[in-house]
Simulated scan of single mutants.
Amino acid sequence: MAQYGFIHDKLDIKMLELYLVSRLAGPVDFDVLTDLVMRHEGVDYFAFAEATAELVESGHLELEEDRYAITEKGRANSAACESSLPYSVRRRCNRDLAPVNAALRRNAQVRGETRVNGDGSVVARMTLDDDGGNLLTIELLCPSKAQAERLIESFRARPERVYNDVLEALAVPSEPEE
């Protein structure tokens, strides 16, 4: 039976995978990687999963905290082999990577963490950065970890609104007290 697309064996899957991961803005989990690779015709899921494990084992990819990132060895091999990928495949990969990279960059710029104090209270620390550096850091004392995590989740959902609301509150001139 004739096989469609450029994927004909596991080596093709590895080249595609290295090309994709080398252009990601940060580490991704297996589900994101699967989604990016499985969009291409001819990719068998089990061959893909096996190729991914082999790339980790050979040192082309690293797996930390259930997230995949490219190594220098993987980056070098990807650069050497990328011309083997058809232009149409590279163009499609770049188009598919755009929203993933946008989400990765946003997640890197909007962070939240909790810190438990000695008295059992919790500090929720929320940070908003842009390409130039830190824009806003807020630390709030919370009575419980659950409340701190809710605050962080709300901040992550709309950091720009929080930033603008803080600016608006600070920009209003204070009225003199009588």
Rank of each mutant, 00 (worst) to 15 (best):
H60V: 01
E113S: 10
F48G: 00
L55V: 07
T34H: 13
L85R: 04
N101P: 03
S144K: 02
L170E: 06
H60P: 01
V123W: 04
T127D: 03
S144Q: 07
Y87Q: 15
P86F: 00
L36V: 07
V162N: 00
G120W: 04
K73E: 14
P27W: 04
D66V: 05
E139R: 09
A102V: 06
E139M: 10
A80M: 10
G132R: 15
F48I: 00
P143D: 10
R92F: 07
E160A: 13
A51T: 01
T127V: 14
N94H: 06
V110W: 01
A79K: 13
G133K: 05
E113T: 09
S84Y: 14
R156A: 12
I70H: 02
Y45L: 14
D35P: 08
R91A: 14
R158G: 15
E113L: 10
V32Y: 03
R125Q: 11
E62S: 12
R125A: 11
E62P: 00
L36R: 02
D129Y: 08
S121F: 04
S84T: 05
T52Y: 05
A148W: 00
N94M: 06
Y87V: 15
K73C: 00
G59R: 05
G59T: 03
E149C: 02
L140C: 03
N107F: 02
F30P: 00
D31S: 13
D96W: 13
E50I: 00
R158L: 05
E65N: 13
E65D: 14
A103G: 02
A157F: 11
E160P: 04
D129S: 08
R150S: 07
V110G: 01
L136N: 00
R150Y: 06
Y87S: 12
S88V: 10
F46S: 11
R158D: 15
T52H: 09
L55D: 09
L61Q: 08
A98G: 05
E65Y: 10
E54V: 08
I152A: 00
R111G: 04
K145Q: 12
N164M: 13
R156K: 15
L97K: 11
A169N: 12
A53H: 11
K73M: 13
E57K: 14
L151K: 03
S121H: 09
D165P: 05
D29M: 05
L55K: 05
E160S: 11
Q147L: 06
D129I: 02
A171W: 04
H40V: 12
F46D: 07
D130C: 12
T127L: 11
V100P: 00
E41C: 09
L128C: 01
P99G: 04
A103L: 09
V116W: 05
R39Q: 15
I70D: 06
D31R: 14
R67V: 07
R150F: 06
R90Y: 07
D44G: 10
